[in-house]
């Protein structure tokens, strides 16, 4: 029996490769995002790669009025229902400094929008008593840094939310996995120059699938970032506040 996956932010570089893996094993896919043309061509790609079903559905983190329709479509799916969240936005910190109103959008895209949808979805999964939620955060959420602290704050919020959701849903057999990618070779990092321990969307997709199988709670990818971030978190604040890393 194939499973159904709701993918929020399906056209992102990282999501696309992960989705292909799901398509290849014959899962059914609800591909949610903003650009319907891109979603439709992605859905066709998934069907040709073997997805049992692939449907493009609208999802805009900033327009929660549309969430109910997506939820209803998801509720109609038989069998195991899963969700993966890839949405988020990272405006340049300098742009946010110049225009503080950008804080709201960043937090909505990366945290409150997807959290609100997952909050609506949670009872459905509790009723079904199984399924997996994959939430893609970022290592940027592990400590506020000069370069991107608003984005980091939003991802920190998402991570804390997912931790609580895991605590809640674990009781009814639903697994919640937090994914914290370091730099990944995507459209977001293109042109930013060489990044330490940069990994590929393909490697991230493999890590996520393996993490799901092993029911990991918090997954760093590339794995070395578990250690890198441990070190960064251990730096005392009086020292850290003077660094630009």
């Amino acid at each position: 029996m194939s499973e159904t996956w709701i993918i929020l932010g399906a056209t992102s570089s990282m999501a696309r490769v992960f989705i292909r893996e799901l398509a290849g094993r014959g899962d059914a896919l609800l591909l949610a995002g903003r650009n319907m043309d891109d979603l439709k061509s992605l859905a066709q790609d998934c069907r040709l790669r073997g997805a049992a079903q692939a449907e493009a559905v609208g999802f805009d983190a900033r327009k929660p009025g549309g969430f109910a329709a997506l939820l209803k479509t998801a509720q109609e799916a038989p069998g195991v229902l899963n969700a993966a969240v890839f949405v988020g936005s990272m405006p340049d910190q300098a742009e946010i400094d110049a225009d503080p109103s950008l804080v709201d959008g960043t937090v909505t895209d990366s945290f409150t929008g997807p959290a609100r949808f997952l909050q609506m979805l949670a009872p459905e999964l509790e009723t079904r008593g199984k399924g997996t939620i994959v939430g893609v955060g970022s290592v940027a959420g592990d400590r506020g840094r000069l370069a991107n602290y608003v984005y980091g704050a939003a991802k920190a919020g998402l991570a804390t939310y997912l931790s609580g959701l895991r605590n809640r849903l674990g009781r009814s057999g639903v697994h919640v996995m937090t994914v914290k990618p370091g730099p990944v070779d995507t459209a977001m990092t293109w042109g930013l120059g060489p990044q330490p321990f940069m990994t590929t969307p393909e490697a991230v997709a493999r890590d996520i699938l393996k993490g799901i199988r092993k029911k990991r709670n918090v997954l760093y990818t590339a794995g070395i970032y578990r250690i890198v971030m441990l070190v960064i978190r251990l730096i005392p604040e009086p020292v850290f506040k003077k660094l630009s890393i």
């Binding site: 056209t11 570089s13 696309r16 650009n35 043309d37 891109d38 061509s41 995507t186 459209a187 293109w190």
Partner: peptide, 9 residues
């Protein structure tokens, strides 16, 4: 170099 991920880009 540019590396578009979508046809529109």
């Amino acid at each position: 170099l540019a590396r578009p991920e979508r046809r529109s880009v």
